[in-house]
Design a binder for these strands. Structure first.
Length: 305
DNA sequence: ATCCAGGAACTGT
DNA sequence: ACAGTTCATGGA
């Protein structure tokens, strides 16, 4: 991590292949998003630490990310945690040089890598949030998934108010572990989704499931297998979480409908590609499947085309 | 109305 | 291991 602490604000120095504006476009993909707000080139985000809520205004000035604290200046330790959170959120640990080399000679990715150069996977550093969000999104359309998330966050999460607006943080697993299935079903979650999410919250509260344990295993299949042992987590969710939370660039949610639609639109196919056809397209993506997928999602969401 | 949506567990072979 | 079925609800 490359950063400087100026007490009232932070500067974070991203690696070479980075485009803040592109990342912001991804963050702004849904106007139903409750966990951050975008205004005039800045992202406003409430970051939850152990027992404090830190409201941040994040912008890009003179080749670095500037983080301002809007309500109060956090402690020295908390400021470092904020820097770490943002470093992870924008996936700044990755060196994308190799990805762009591969993409420059790839039939599918060439245009996308060029068009969205500097876009990084926008991560979900909190493991519980990543798992819960993935489960909410299973087998339903994206607008409804956002509706579920909004209800879930506004029912069980915490907020702070600044200049008349509310800024929310995702509910903690401790809070969700104490709920009944019926509490969550009220928000129009299916019984199963409610069970899955509460079950995961309980596992995390019991210390059986932690991000640290998953990060210790670096082998792709080992991590995928441990995630898939969790009830409610199949291959798609495991890969989604590895991509958005655990920073595995080779994770590949190959069954993802968004990925299929993106390929169909990009390549002008008559129908969605089969898994076998996707494997063919992805033949050269080894090691960078997560980035390929993310760029395809960005394309799917591109309103300028 | 019918099909599909950023799937997964369960059941039967 | 593998295919078929069930879960449930909103959007097109």
């Amino acid at each position: 991590m490359n950063w400087m602490d100026y007490e009232s604000y932070l500067e974070i120095y991203p690696p070479k292949e980075f485009n803040f504006k592109e990342c912001l476009i991804f963050l702004g993909r849904s106007d139903q998003e409750v966990l951050h707000q975008i205004k005039e080139g800045f992202v406003y985000k409430l970051i939850k630490m152990k027992d404090s809520l830190i409201l941040c205004k994040i912008g890009y000035i003179n080749y670095f990310i500037k983080v301002e604290f809007l309500k109060r200046i956090p402690s020295t330790a908390a400021r470092k945690k904020v820097a770490e959170y943002i470093w992870e959120w924008f996936d700044l640990e990755q060196n994308l040089e190799e990805f762009y080399q591969m993409a420059s000679v790839d039939k599918v990715l060439k245009k996308l890598a060029d068009k969205y150069f500097g876009l990084r996977i926008m991560c979900i550093p909190d493991l519980f949030e990543a798992l819960a969000w993935a489960i909410m999104g299973q087998q339903i359309n994206l607008p409804f998934a956002y509706t579920l998330k909004q209800r879930f966050v506004e029912q069980f999460g915490e907020f702070t108010t600044f200049e008349g607006e509310r800024f929310w943080s995702f509910p903690s697993f401790e809070k969700i572990a104490s709920l009944n299935v019926e509490d969550v079903r009220k928000l129009q979650f299916t019984t199963r989704k409610a069970e899955y999410i509460i079950g995961i919250a309980k596992d995390m509260k019991g210390g059986k499931l932690t991000k640290e344990l998953l990060l210790q295993k670096r082998d792709y299949h080992q991590v995928q297998k441990s995630l898939m042992r969790i009830r409610g987590v199949g291959a798609w969710t495991a890969d989604y979480v590895m991509m958005k939370c655990l920073h595995h660039t080779s994770s590949f949610p190959i069954a993802d409908v968004g990925l299929h639609n993106a390929l169909k639109n990009l390549l002008g196919l008559k129908k969605k590609p089969s898994i076998a056809e996707i494997k063919d397209y992805a033949a050269n993506w080894e090691g960078w499947q997560a980035y390929a997928t993310f760029y395809l999602w960005r394309f799917l969401n591109d309103k300028t085309i």
